[in-house]
Design a protein around this nucleic acid. Structure first.
Lengths: 191, 191
DNA sequence: ACAACTCGTTCACCTAAGTTAAGAAACGAA
DNA sequence: TTCGTTTCTTAACTTAGGTGAACGAGTTGT
């Protein structure tokens, strides 16, 4: 697990042994059971998540209905909105599978970053990269139909379609579960 | 113009006179005429944009059709995807109105950031904030219908509806211009 | 084993967005 | 100004997604 983390970090900055040990001394690793709710609507938290293994999901409850807007899998990082703007969360985060997560809170980050400015640089690079990636995903979503979105997902994240319940996937694609079934049947017929 | 910039920066870090002068010596301010194309598909650039006055627009050309995915107005910052991942751009950026922009390139940033680490911190804060905001906008888009999106825009960025051509607005909402006209007529009828 | 529940799928019907076409209004260039 | 272009709107028709209901398969709990 440590290796996965340090390999990831090494894409951005190179760490000394001291810095690695400083990180490891923070008790960041957590195993989380499937179904665990990490964050609820209305709560405030200081925690950010980094997925080492497994899958977590962001969803809203609107008119009593779950609306899934994001899945985070291996090597994805998630800093909840409420951590940034210090307001209560307007969404939920839960665990789709048994997962191993790295959970860090703002206090830790502030402390580590002030001791090792290198982490500030890494965080900046990471946010910039995530922002650019997020924008691309958004652009693809906007410029395509539900059917194209499904086909696109089939290309880019085929694992998601297998590991995630279909009704969550439907809402992730912006449609109803029934429409996803119909859409899949339509695609099969075409071939 | 300088004041607008420094007021904006002061929300993140406080600058000394030296730091302010270092910024001003960089020749960042540019006036750009309506219709000017700042970035074309296939091009590489090092430039990031910050809108002091006016409006710029990001769009793709798919099957010969323009697809607008974003508008940037006063105090919005835009770092094109191609600056981050060093690949040719897959979209265009153009000027919707006569605008005053702050244009900075990567070389400048690297130089300034190494001289004043404070800017690294500011950039990190800014990217994190933008990422969170972007995610919220994306979530709203995903969880609502075109009609709701239009009503939402009417609430949150009413100026956009006035200052931007309707066909660009339609594609920003993920629909055809005809559908936007129809949708607006439908809303008027309801009232 | 059985009931209660969840999940994925199918169907029929409804509604809204896509498509094609046409005309009116606004804008720009000569 | 006038001609030509672009932009916006309206209409008629098509199509895909929303909605409500129903069914079977798989789970969970008793």
């Amino acid at each position: 697990m440590k290796d996965i983390l340090f390999d990831f970090i090494s894409k951005y900055v190179s760490l000394t042994e001291d810095e690695k040990n400083a990180l490891l001394s923070l008790d960041l690793f957590h195993t989380v059971k499937k179904g665990t709710v990490l964050l609820e609507e209305g709560q405030k938290t200081q925690d950010s998540y980094f997925v080492l293994k497994g899958c977590i999901r962001v969803y809203y409850i609107l008119d009593g209905e779950e609306r899934t807007t994001a899945f985070y899998t291996e090597l994805d990082a998630l800093t909840p909105h409420c951590v940034i703007n210090k307001a209560p969360s307007d969404y939920y985060i839960s665990c789709v599978e048994d997962s191993i997560l790295l959970i860090s809170n703002t206090d830790m980050s502030v402390e580590v970053n002030s001791k090792f400015p290198k982490f500030d640089v890494m965080c900046r690079m990471l946010s910039e990269e995530l922002l650019a990636k997020q924008q691309m995903v958004f652009d693809e979503f906007k410029t395509s139909s539900p059917e194209q979105r499904y086909l696109n997902l089939l290309q880019k994240r085929p694992d998601l379609i297998q590991r995630v319940p279909q009704h969550q996937l439907a809402s992730y694609l912006g449609i109803q579960p029934q429409s996803l079934s119909r859409l899949k049947a339509r695609i099969l017929k075409k071939k």
